[in-house]
Write a protein that binds this DNA or RNA. Structure first.
Lengths: 164, 164
DNA sequence: CATTTAGTTCAATAATTTTTGAACAAATAA
DNA sequence: TTATTTGTTCAAAAATTATTGAACTAAATG
């Protein structure tokens, strides 16, 4: 494979680490993109990335779990192929909003344990907890409006291209 | 300290690990909440959490960096105290939206490296990249509207309490 | 039924991250 | 100036997480 593509795969690996996933997950995701194939097999991935079967097995499951990739099966072929998943565009976000709710609950639980609930901090903690609940609700709502807004947004971005 | 509070501090530590920070950061944050004090000193934290000075020093900096806590200084006292920060409610989110833009850029870069740009996957990758740019912009916008909306939201939540 | 293919599982290893603890620096106090 | 307080820095240790590789299972083929 082309050197630029190999570099991209590693870059994707490092980026995924920042996003909180594993380097190998980013490598596989990047490879699926630049492979220029409809779908790639388990063994294609293993060879391209020079990694162990165990690692590919575990990481494809991880990527399947969060909806980044999807399996493809073909008649008369017992292999499983993988490609970038076209569903679940907001899947990762759903997970994030769950974390916001968890943080909100953590804050409220902390306030419950305070003896003095008349101070500034208590009021602030309640507000911060409400903020994260509000945010989770608003983001869930946002996700639903992408389908309606995407056409206009993408056209607008394009029209704007190159302007200051 | 009360056993329930100690448990809460550990719970907060585990939660912060899920949020992508360190366990110690969560412990300090949790301790600041349940301490029921206006502000706590470096040494209060160290004793309460039975951790090393190095760990407290590094972690308070981490928490200061993301705006979760803020320093308090008092005249005639050379210690630095810390409390939950009341500013920067959306600070953590700003960092997240930066990640969305990074992911969007990663996707576009991947498409650039493809030879065949007429396939389904390419169109999908463009759409996904646009989605994350759109989302980042919308979330930035959301953060600005919390101040306006919070009063109504908190009143509404309260009114709704206990209803199905 | 025996063999091959396709992938999973899991204990061991490698790599990374977190925490400690001791030495250090800066600032105040004596 | 010397001693004490308050915290920082950083190398080493501990803990955690990712990856390998070998043994295994399940399904399909001959």
């Amino acid at each position: 494979m082309d050197n630029e593509k190999l570099n991209y795969i590693e870059e994707s690996g490092l980026a995924f680490e920042i996003f909180g996933m594993t380097r190998m997950a980013g490598r596989i995701f990047g490879y699926l993109i630049v492979s220029d194939k409809e779908a790639v097999s388990f063994d294609d991935i293993r060879e391209a990335l020079d990694a162990s079967k165990g690692s590919i097995s575990g990481t494809t499951k991880q990527l399947l779990g969060v909806g980044f990739i999807e399996p493809v099966s073909l008649p008369g072929d017992r292999k499983t192929y993988y490609r970038i998943s076209k569903s679940n565009i907001g899947a990762i976000l759903k997970g994030r909003t769950a974390l916001f709710l968890k943080f909100s609950a953590l804050l409220e639980k902390g306030v419950d344990l305070k003896i003095n609930k008349d101070d500034d901090i208590t009021a602030w903690l309640h507000e911060m907890a409400a903020f994260y609940r509000w945010l989770a609700a608003r983001i869930e709502h946002l996700l639903n409006s992408w389908e309606e807004e995407k056409e206009v947004f993408m056209k607008y971005e394009n029209k704007d291209h190159g302007k200051k």
